[in-house]
Design a protein around this nucleic acid. Structure first.
Lengths: 133, 133
DNA sequence: CGGTATCCCTCTCGATACTG
DNA sequence: CAGTATCGAGAGGGATACCG
């Protein structure tokens, strides 16, 4: 998607504030991640406790095996989820939030609060906009 | 992207908590919006005060005219940004956050705080993961 | 100045089939 | 059970050209 079109600078972290798109601003990978279809949902479920692969699959209606695996790998790679393999027969794999993952639930909840508080305003605004255009 | 594959239910709003993907959960459109490439950046700039189209374009390095227009329209449609046309010659158009838009900056800032606090942890986790795989 | 319209490419994601 | 591999559709986004 051409993200490399942006010039990489050496600005301090504080200069990224309010401008998440400059260079390697730390907010961008996070927004990419939570903007995807499944990350927030998976984290929400894991917020209630660890879960097996197939449990997650059952609880998240509509997710494909591929996307569940892929999203969990992404979360694991970012240190938000811990994957534990129990070498039983058949194998058992448990997924759980790390401390970092749990700490991310807080700002995520704040976002959800906002969405819930403003859902009517937003749909009213959409209706008004659509009627005017 | 097949979002219509999900069954629409009549669950109350509170049941959406922790499960943003069921039906028309209000969190999903928000995550889609802030997950896109430009929305958060534009809102960050407008948080400092109103701005003209060309100002935004200059400040947001790398954005195309099309995406600036498209993102601003999306924000306007959701009631987060107000567009004001001054019929001068040449025409002047000012964009500003609405009250709702300003209120969204708070959870967004919380997210940014998290990202800044955890940027080192995350990149360390990525490094460790990549070396182990 | 502040847009629209069009073309096209890339990347994401879903479906499907196969595996240790 | 918990994956991996591969394919293909389609949406997002950039480049470019044109307009009131």
């Amino acid at each position: 998607m051409g993200r490399r079109h942006f010039v990489v600078t050496n600005k301090s972290i504080s200069e990224f504030r309010g401008n998440p798109y400059i260079a390697d601003c730390p907010t961008r990978p996070l927004l990419d991640r939570i903007g995807d279809r499944w990350t927030v949902l998976i984290m929400g479920i894991l917020g209630h406790g660890e879960a097996r692969f197939s449990e997650l699959r059952r609880q998240i209606e509509g997710i494909s095996q591929k996307m569940l695996t892929q999203t969990l790998r992404g979360l694991e790679r970012n240190g938000l989820v811990r994957r534990t393999v129990y070498p039983e027969v058949p194998v058992r794999v448990e997924y759980a939030l790390t401390d970092a993952g749990r700490s991310l639930l807080e700002p995520l909840d704040a976002l959800q609060e906002w969405a819930i508080e403003h859902v009517h305003d937003v749909s009213a605004a959409q209706k008004a906009y659509d009627e005017a255009h």
